[in-house]
């Protein structure tokens, strides 16, 4: 009687141990898969995000519909970001009057005073805000700064730039082809 009960407990223990191990392996597999997916690529739907700018303006999915959106990840401590800052601002001044192009600066792992000083130094006027909780950065599966994603009017990632833009022409070339009818 006792031996039978003990055997039942032992077989349930084995089932539990194997189920536990399988669950653990599944968890590791999911983590590994998400870690190895790499940066968002062209054609993938752009992740939805909401950014509150340093001025308190909220930019959400409703502000992006039907627009070409340039999402630039930057930080004040990032030296390569400085190389493209002026070109990005020039491009914004070029496209802002059209109304169908939006630039969004996402400040990654930064401190507010230094970020504001950076924006002032490069006279940047397009919407910029801190990436609270680093959620937008992870949603775009970014791997560093600067990184820029251009989203077409259908809400798909149409262009990815790892590292700084070399010139204003490089930015306009990427955007213009998305504005063609």
């Amino acid at each position: 009687m006792f031996a039978k009960k003990s055997k039942t407990i032992s077989s349930w223990g084995a089932v539990f141990a194997w189920a536990f191990l399988a669950g653990l392996l599944a968890l590791v597999a999911i983590q590994l898969n998400s870690a190895q997916r790499g940066v968002l690529t062209r054609g993938e739907p752009a992740p939805e995000f909401t950014l509150t700018t340093f001025e308190g303006e909220v930019i959400g999915p409703e502000n992006l519909v039907g627009k070409v959106v340039l999402v630039n990840f930057w930080a004040s401590w990032c030296k390569p970001c400085e190389q493209e800052a002026a070109a990005l601002q020039s491009a914004w001044e070029l496209y802002e009057p059209r109304g169908d192009v939006l630039f969004v600066g996402v400040d990654y792992a930064d401190t507010q005073n230094e970020a504001l000083a950076y924006l002032k130094r490069f006279a940047i006027t397009y919407p910029n805000g801190p990436d609270l909780g680093i959620r937008i950065y992870y949603a775009f599966r970014a791997r560093g700064v600067p990184e820029t994603f251009i989203i077409n009017k259908l809400g798909e990632v149409a262009f990815v730039k790892i590292g700084p833009f070399e010139s204003l022409d490089e930015i306009t070339m990427a955007i213009d082809r998305l504005l063609e009818p």
């Binding site: 930080a75 004040s76 401590w77 792992a109 930064d110 401190t111 230094e114 680093i134």
Partner: peptide, 20 residues
């Protein structure tokens, strides 16, 4: 800091960590 993996903030030498 998320920029320097596995380096505590007190000994991290990057500009980002200095700001933090």
């Amino acid at each position: 800091c998320p920029v320097c993996a596995n380096v505590p903030l007190d000994v991290c030498g990057t500009a980002a960590c200095a700001q933090w």
